[in-house]
Design a binder for these strands. Sequence first.
RNA 1: GCGGAUGUGGUGAAAUUGGUAUACACGCCAGACUUAGGAUCUGGUGCCGCAAGGCGUGGAGGUUCAAGUCCUCUCAUCCGCACCA
Length: 817
Amino acid sequence: MTYNPSEIEKKWQGFWEANRSFEPHEDYSKDKKYILSMFPFPSGRLHMGHVRNYSIGDAFARYHRQMGKNVLHPIGWDSFGMPAENAAIKNGAHPKKWTYENIDYMRSELASLGLSFSKEREFATSDELYTKFEQGFIIDMYEKGLLYRKKASLNWCPHDQTVLANEQVVDGCCWRCDTEVVKKEMNQYYLKISDYADELLQDLDKLKEGWPSQVLTMQENWIGKSSGLEFDLHFDEDSKAKLNNSFEKFDVFTTRPDTIYGVSYTALAPEHDIVTYMLDNNLLDESSALAIKKMKNASSIDRQKEKSGVALNINVLHPLTGKSVPVWVANFVLMDYGSGAVMAVPAHDDRDYDFAKMYDLEVNAVIKPKDADVDVSEKAFTDAGVLFNSGQFDGQKSTKAQPAIIYHFEQEKIGKKVINFKLKDWGISRQRYWGAPIPFIHCEDCGIVMEEKQNLPIILPEDVEFTGEGSPLYNHPTWKTCACPKCGKDAERETDTMDTFVESSWYFLRYTASKAIQEDKAFDVKELDYWMNVDHYVGGIEHAILHLLYARFFTKVFRDLGYIKHDEPFGHLLTQGMVLKDGSKMSKSKGNTVDPDALIEKYGADTARLFILFAAPPTQELEWNDSAVEGSHKFLKRLSERSSNAVKCENIPRIDHSALSKEEKFARKKVYEALQRAEDVYTNKFTFNTLIAGVMEAMNALHEQKNSDVWTEGYWIILSILEPIVPHICWELSDTLFGRANLGEQKVLDEVFVVDSMMLGVAINGKNRAEIEVSPSASKEEILALAKVALEKWLEGKEIVKEIVVPKKLVNIVVKG
RNA sequence: GCGGAUGUGGUGAAAUUGGUAUACACGCCAGACUUAGGAUCUGGUGCCGCAAGGCGUGGAGGUUCAAGUCCUCUCAUCCGCACCA
């Protein structure tokens, strides 16, 4: 049969569409599988990363459908976001029009790949219906006390009068007008993810089976739980006077209380209240004030590059020794971790050490290794050790001194044990147009008032200008005017929209909503119970932290709001590697992209899917190679052409294995080995590349023999194995040959694995020297006798020290002399 | 700086998890068929060497009868980041 991909792909895509082949069934007594690939942002065109993502997901979905499972395999669009607005600024295209046109085009691209998505559950997060439910959830969270407002320091372009995202700041300047970016304090809404920090950390345990360990580690580090000592540092009298008696003290946090006697200075974040007070009241000389302002304006990345500090010329008293300790401002101290102030122990902390050397501050060692003296003349000694110069704690080991010192502080009521998290609350406000409006109203009398739920969704106005200056919603002449829902007075709508991570934090729940309830509810408890959790979640490693953490957080919040019963959304996670060309990531700026449409047009979707799953295991980076794509295409051509060796039938042929030739037996063995591997790959290993290699081996072995029953049986099985990977060609051939009766679970026949003889490697001192053929029932003695004959020339004049026989593998003889 | 990974033929990669290193594929070489070949089929292909043989999984050690796999040190590359006290 000639292979004509464009014809058969169109044919079967039409068939699937007409027959609604991939809609899940509403029979909740059936076993289910929920297979989900991360939904795309509708940027305009599919890229190879998408093709990889959806090919992997589709393989799972189709495999489980063959196994008789009720499969939910949905798709949608993460359609709010900055690029739509940028396109509007650049080309004048309205974000809504731009977005929905992109969706239409990309939907057709996905269709041309033959992906087995459910159509009835597709949505875009910018749909008003989705916004309606999301705004409802935000109101619920506010009422639950999970949403609050606080000041944040944002990137601000004074020229465009607009907030900039980190990626819009280029070398400290605005990407559009090149004006120097400054920090501006603004009120922002925050979700209290920190309330869930402990549970988000604890529950990583539940994911150990199904998630890659490096993702768990990254999340663990991100949440960053640590315990230590928190205590106050009191100013001396002079310093208090200098600060107009406005401050008595500030508190610091340390995870190394054992080093406390080594404190030689303390450092405040440039944003610290005390620093702000000193700046506001002109208590610093001009150059110091300027340096601090510079620190505050620097991007967090610049702040990491080089340490800098300013002495405040005030002092605090060491809580244990009473010694005077100078207070500095340091750029590496962060306001939103701990209390924004640290005690510095340069002798035992690398950062503190560098800083002390820079500004010629004291370095007082108080910890030494167990059996040696400590030398801090070149670098800090950061290991645990034994305390000295530490008063009553001298001679104690770090591990013992830490709790002992904390206990001492608690007894004296001058400090306490504290648990800290790195995880910060999630700021969800964005000063942008193309996002879901935050459904709040500002009333002069009532303050912040929630919009009434019956008035949702609060939708975006369409008559908006995109100039890149200011916030389009804020600038709109009438949109924000409204009446206060509480008192009826004139009020103003909130003009901030939500971070798009909010949408992607619950979209997987929305997919469970069947058509019947989609209009009325975001989702239904019964349907959720049946479909959740997601059995396989497939997506890029770049989402390892933020998206996955936020989605886990929303799941827990929804549980506590009583909407759902699950603690964790994603049972198994597969993080795919990047698609590279010429050794680096495909990107427009590098000009090394390969266009999926062109690929499909030239070779067909099946070739694209086959290559992408064959070229590397899914978790690894994939190096693009045009001639290897050609190779995948040739394999499919052979698959098609050699199908003429198989015979039409309705059942798998019965074969008398013992009557077959060696080549025929070998071919059957290869076919069933591939089948065995298929189960392992689709359910455990996900190394589709080795599965495809196994099928190629089976094809090669079939080609070495001429028995048409063996060919037929081979095709019966191979087409079933390959269907999840290259569905169109498999449906076509299977339809022609077997009326598609083979597209289902196939049984492994153990009889084909029985062999008459096997080859064993024979080695001397571990060095492979020969090969022997033995019967599977041969005894150890028989094998050794054969091995010694094979090794005759190597054994001459040597003394045999040891003989090792590893059944079915090899023989190793250890000799001397 | 911190955190996470990755190093195997000319190339993408296998290796049943300590047991014959390089399966499968690309590329390359030779041959067949052909008006033609960028189609198809057949054979070959880790490196050095005429050969016997030797050497080979980034590098150096170690454990073991046996190491790509385990341990120690080291080098290179990639990814993420909020200097997390």
